[in-house]
């Protein structure tokens, strides 16, 4: 952030990212709150035709900035060009949506009774990490918790990828291939071409 600029409440949303992961550590049902970060950018893009969420409100992007720039955890070197190329961005979006779909299917299996609730987090879509302390039953059916575990896995994995590229390259390198960013920019481009 440039010095001397007026600070807004939404400049501190990086705290939200930390709070989100902390809450999910203790109770996985809080993972559902991450849906805000999925729905809000889409509302901005579809209704407003802008990326105001990415530009001003993204807690994750702000966290990378705070850690990378303010706390000097980034090499601040240019990232390879392919990371921000169209094919990689849309390829990553496709991969991400496929994994999101798989997660929804897992939730459905628990919902239908064909599968049982697994109290674990999957990192990088590969490594299973026990997370059983985060859920001890609730008034909600099991599938609600299953979605929580799946969604938290997705959020944590993508944040970890973001932290890795933050350390290696520029602070907000994640933003160049963030699936939400790609999606909202795509929507904005279509909207601006239509002329409204």
């Amino acid at each position: 952030m440039a010095a001397g600029k007026k600070k807004h409440w939404y400049d501190y949303l990086w705290i939200w990212t930390i709070v989100y992961f902390a809450l999910g550590f203790f109770n996985i049902l809080f993972a559902w709150l991450g849906m805000i970060d999925f729905i809000l950018p889409l509302i901005f893009a579809i209704a407003g035709g802008n990326k105001w969420f990415c530009n001003h409100m993204c807690g994750r992007g702000q966290l990378f900035w705070v850690l990378g720039r303010n706390l000097k955890c980034s090499r601040r070197k240019p990232a390879p060009k392919w990371l921000s190329s169209t094919w990689f961005r849309y390829g990553f979006l496709t991969f991400f949506m496929t994994m999101f779909g798989t997660m929804i299917f897992q939730t459905y299996l628990v919902f239908s009774g064909a599968g049982s609730l697994r109290k674990a987090i999957k990192l990088f879509w590969t490594f299973r990490v026990p997370w059983k302390w985060a859920y001890n039953g609730s008034v909600f059916p099991d599938w609600v918790a299953q979605f929580g575990f799946g969604f938290y896995s997705l959020m944590l994995t993508s944040t970890l990828i973001g932290l890795i590229v933050m350390a290696l390259y520029k602070e907000r390198t994640w933003c160049t291939f963030c699936p939400m960013g790609t999606m909202t920019q795509g929507i904005c481009r279509i909207k601006s071409k239509k002329g409204n």
């Binding site: 600029k5 990326k51 530009n55 921000s84 190329s85 961005r89 960013g181 909202t184 929507i187």
Partner: peptide, 23 residues
């Protein structure tokens, strides 16, 4: 090639950069 993330606009001390229609 711009991804419209808005980091440039945030860092600009002169507020000379804006994101055009999210594009």
């Amino acid at each position: 090639r711009c991804v419209a993330c808005g980091v440039c606009a945030l860092t600009c001390p002169r507020e000379a950069i804006s994101i055009f229609k999210g594009c």
